[in-house]
C-alpha cells in the first residue's frame, strides 16, 4: 500500500513540477499519468504492488467525484436562474459529444478493416 502511494504520488509530484517549471496549462496529475505510462512501456511491465493495488483503487473512483457534487449548493442561485438553459446545454452537448466520436471511430475502424480485408 505504502509503495503504491509512493509510486502514484511521486509521479503526480513529478508531473506537477514539470507543469509548473514549463508553465504548461496541463495539470500535474495528467502529466504524471503520461510519465508513468512511458515508464511502464520502458520497463515492459507493471510493478507487482501497482498491479495488485491499482484495480482496487480505481474500483472506487466514483467516490472521489462526490465532494465536487456538493458545489451545487454554492452555485444554487446561478443554477436556478439559468436552470433550463444550463440543462439544455449540458444535455445537448453531452449527446453530441458522445455520438460524433462514436461515428468517427466506427467509420475509421471499418475503413481500416476493409482495406486490410
Amino acid at each position: 500500500m505504502i509503495e503504491s502511494l509512493i509510486w502514484l504520488l511521486g509521479y503526480q509530484l513529478a508531473g506537477e513540477l514539470v507543469s509548473r517549471a514549463c508553465g504548461l496549462p496541463i495539470p500535474g496529475a495528467v502529466l504524471g499519468m503520461l510519465f508513468l505510462f512511458i515508464t511502464l512501456c520502458w520497463r515492459r511491465g507493471t510493478p507487482a504492488v501497482l498491479a495488485s493495488h491499482v484495480p482496487a483503487f480505481l474500483k472506487h473512483l466514483s467516490l472521489l467525484f462526490i465532494p465536487a457534487g456538493a458545489a451545487v449548493l454554492a452555485y444554487r442561485d446561478l443554477l436556478t436562474g439559468h436552470a433550463l438553459a444550463i440543462a439544455f446545454v449540458l444535455v445537448a452537448s453531452t449527446l453530441v459529444t458522445l455520438l460524433v466520436p462514436a461515428a468517427v471511430l466506427r467509420l475509421a475502424l471499418r475503413l481500416r478493416s476493409e482495406r486490410r480485408g
Binding site: 508531473g15 500535474g28 496529475a29 495528467v30 504524471g32 499519468m33 503520461l34 507493471t46 498491479a51 483503487f57
Partner: peptide, 10 residues
C-alpha cells in the same frame, strides 16, 4: 483524484 488519474496509466 490526483493519484487516481496517475493510476490510469496501469
Amino acid at each position: 483524484l490526483g493519484p487516481a488519474t496517475v493510476a490510469l496509466a496501469v
